[in-house]
Design a protein around this nucleic acid. Structure first.
Length: 284
DNA sequence: CAAAGAACCTGGCGGC
DNA sequence: TGCCGCCAGGTTCTTT
């Protein structure tokens, strides 16, 4: 029986969830050939960068040689130096299913492989598909900061990325330039673990605080990957099985509840339109 | 150039 | 039961 992964209706945005998907799909897609491509005509996910017709013809017949990840982007490394980038936006989902299974609503792409189909659905269409040929890396990737789990990302590197910035720490973390792959959940969790408030001006962090934050980012992301990401709403990483990190959340989504560490009431602030949760007792 | 806010979309939820 | 406003894991464009 083939694994359906993830279940329909899931949402897959931040680095640990994308990495969970990558690890699950890799053994099912690598070394397989693309035998068919169905892409919704005029799919918004293509963003006018390539026509549906060209997109299809450039994928057909290629071999999937590798599946990797950069930040929140999933990268299908195809034969003849073609690269397919998938970004999931807020509601994108990608799963492997048997041929001929009923497709979920908002399906935008079906890639037929030898033993099943890769299906991409995205109700809100904030996700995007990018095809980059032998000309080189896509500009979207060039804007990304260091990979948080790489050795090259450390306290001094983060300190430099925050230096001189007056915007809220949370805004800088979400902008992907100081570090890649951190989103709304994990920025709050990492700030809590490091004892700094997400509302602080980014440049106000000391070298010591930036070091603690860099370590916390690594720690939180690694732990979540280990637990197969967060299950919030209806995201599942496999049939009926959930990711486990949502039970480890210390502040995200916990406005008005007592902090498990110090008992203070967790607060919510709005930072450039996004919710930020923090503990006034544990974070300075 | 940097920062803040709007825009892009659909769907689920709680309140009335 | 409906209808309405609010909220959602992200990025990009516009405005200040």
């Amino acid at each position: 029986m083939l694994t359906l992964f993830p279940r329909w209706g899931q949402k897959v945005p931040e680095l640990p969830e994308v990495e969970t998907i990558r690890r699950c799909l890799e053994p099912m897609v690598v070394q397989r050939f693309i035998k068919s491509v169905w892409v919704k005509r005029e799919s918004r996910l293509l963003r006018d960068t390539v026509s549906a017709r060209d997109f299809r013809s450039r994928l057909l017949g290629r071999k999937i040689q590798g599946l990797s990840r950069r930040g929140k982007y999933l990268k299908f490394e195809l034969s003849r130096a073609e690269l397919l980038l998938v970004h999931f936006g807020m509601t994108g989902s990608l799963f492997f299913t048997k041929h001929g299974e009923k497709l979920p609503a908002h399906t935008h792409l079906v890639i037929g492989l030898s033993k099943g189909d890769l299906v991409l659905a995205d109700p809100r269409t904030f996700g995007r598909l990018m095809l980059t040929g032998p000309d080189g890396p896509h500009p979207a990737l060039a804007k990304l900061g260091p990979e948080p789990l790489a050795r090259s990302f450390n306290g001094p590197r983060l300190f430099n990325g925050l230096a001189g910035r007056r915007a809220a720490l949370k805004s800088i973390l979400l902008s992907q330039g100081a570090v890649a792959g951190v989103g709304n959940i994990y920025s709050d969790e990492a700030c809590f673990a490091a004892g700094v408030r997400p509302t602080r001006p980014a440049g106000s962090l000391s070298a010591l605080e930036a070091g603690a934050l860099a370590s916390s980012i690594k720690k939180v992301l690694k732990k979540s990957i280990e637990l197969k990401g967060c299950t919030i709403s209806d995201y599942h990483w496999d049939q009926g099985r959930s990711g486990g990190f949502q039970d480890r959340l210390k502040v995200y989504g916990r406005e008005g509840l007592a902090c498990a560490r110090c008992g203070s009431i967790i607060q919510r602030a709005v930072i450039s339109g996004r919710s930020a949760f923090f503990c006034p007792g544990c974070q300075r």
